[in-house]
């Protein structure tokens, strides 16, 4: 790590002011630090100042309200999300996703906000000496290089995958994210928070340089809902997803009243598969319906040299989730 100065944040206003007064990358935010410190250690980022968000009051904790739903502060740790009784019971997809993240030590300090805003794990991006497109270079090295862990959907021109497990799960539940900037706060669908490299190759979300994520809101759990987070990995832990599926179903017996299918580990952003959702909605789920949903989920996939297996894998995970809903 290069040297930096450290500020314990005292208010959101102070944070947005400090961010507004600096150039991009000069001042960075840190909460759990489990991602950022890795970037600093690799000299991928060399900020002059880090703002410690952990000292901000009122940004940690989980609130449950029958009418407004679930509110999770951005500083809530992944471990607290994974073990929260209401989340486990009514929002299983989130608890399962949280429990699948990294390791106990990471879950104990990693935060919701950090998990949503973490940077890609791409091995070209994480190598200081490789000046890839994402870091202002000319090409994405995954295109002609080793691409086992890269994107099959939405990649062009940067084939990273978004590493978050919580994002697909929360998007599948229709979550919103509350953002505060110098002009005040705004709320948007978490689905719209993430961007693809075609829009901006350097960033994974729409957060402006002087904005911060303060909380995530999840609508009240609907009755007859079943939800799952299926994550395929090479290694039990710690390992990022080769592919994952966050799936939320409203079921009427074996018939799917509505489905929400969001893929992780296969695209530069959490990837909502409207195609798979359409293939399931209103259908009585059986083997062939679930297979069709899987096939539809990956019909636009464009694998690179080494990751065609992800197409099959994703397809199978979607089918499996659908069958689980019906069983």
């Amino acid at each position: 790590m290069e040297k930096f100065s450290y500020v314990n944040a005292t208010s959101v206003e102070q944070v947005t002011t400090l961010l507004s007064d600096s150039r991009w990358g000069e001042v960075m935010l840190v909460a759990g630090g489990t991602d950022l410190l890795g970037e600093l250690k690799e000299y991928i980022e060399t900020p002059k100042t880090l703002i410690n968000l952990k000292t901000l009051p009122g940004m940690e904790g989980i609130k449950v309200d029958e009418t407004t739903g679930l509110t999770i502060g951005a500083l809530t740790t992944v471990a607290d999300i994974a073990k929260h009784p209401t989340i486990r019971h009514h929002y299983a997809v989130v608890a399962e996703a949280a429990g699948s993240i990294a390791t106990p030590q990471i879950r104990n300090v990693g935060t919701l906000g950090g998990n949503l805003c973490q940077r890609p794990r791409c091995w070209y991006y994480r190598d200081e000496a490789t000046n890839c497109l994402k870091k202002g270079g000319d090409i994405c090295f995954a295109v002609d290089g080793l691409s086992k862990y890269h994107a099959i959907l939405g990649g062009d021109p940067v084939y990273i995958v978004h590493p978050s497990d919580l994002a697909p799960a929360l998007i599948a539940l229709g979550a919103s994210v509350k953002i505060v900037g110098p002009e005040g706060e705004k709320t948007m669908l978490l689905e719209d928070f993430f961007t693809l490299p075609a829009a901006n190759p350097f960033r994974e979300n729409v957060l402006q340089s002087n904005e911060i994520v303060v909380e995530v809101q999840v609508p009240p759990a609907k009755p007859n809902t079943k939800s799952f987070y299926l994550k395929a990995r090479e290694k039990g832990a710690p390992d990022f997803a080769l592919a994952s599926v966050a799936a939320v179903f409203e079921m009427d017996g074996k018939t799917c009243a509505s489905a929400s299918i969001v893929l992780g580990g296969v695209a530069p952003a959490p990837w909502r598969s409207k195609e798979a959702e359409a293939a399931l909605t209103g259908k009585m789920i059986d083997d062939s319906v679930s297979r069709q949903a899987g096939a539809d989920a990956v019909k636009d996939a464009q694998p690179l040299n080494d990751n065609a297996y992800k197409v099959t894998l994703t397809q199978n995970l979607v089918s499996r989730a659908a069958m689980m809903a019906a069983s």
């Binding site: 091995w123 070209y124 190598d127 000496a129 490789t130 090295f141 002609d144 290089g145 080793l146």
Partner: peptide, 9 residues
């Protein structure tokens, strides 16, 4: 990596 000559992992 055949492009950069570096170990990726």
């Amino acid at each position: 990596d055949p492009q950069t000559g570096r170990m990726l992992n």
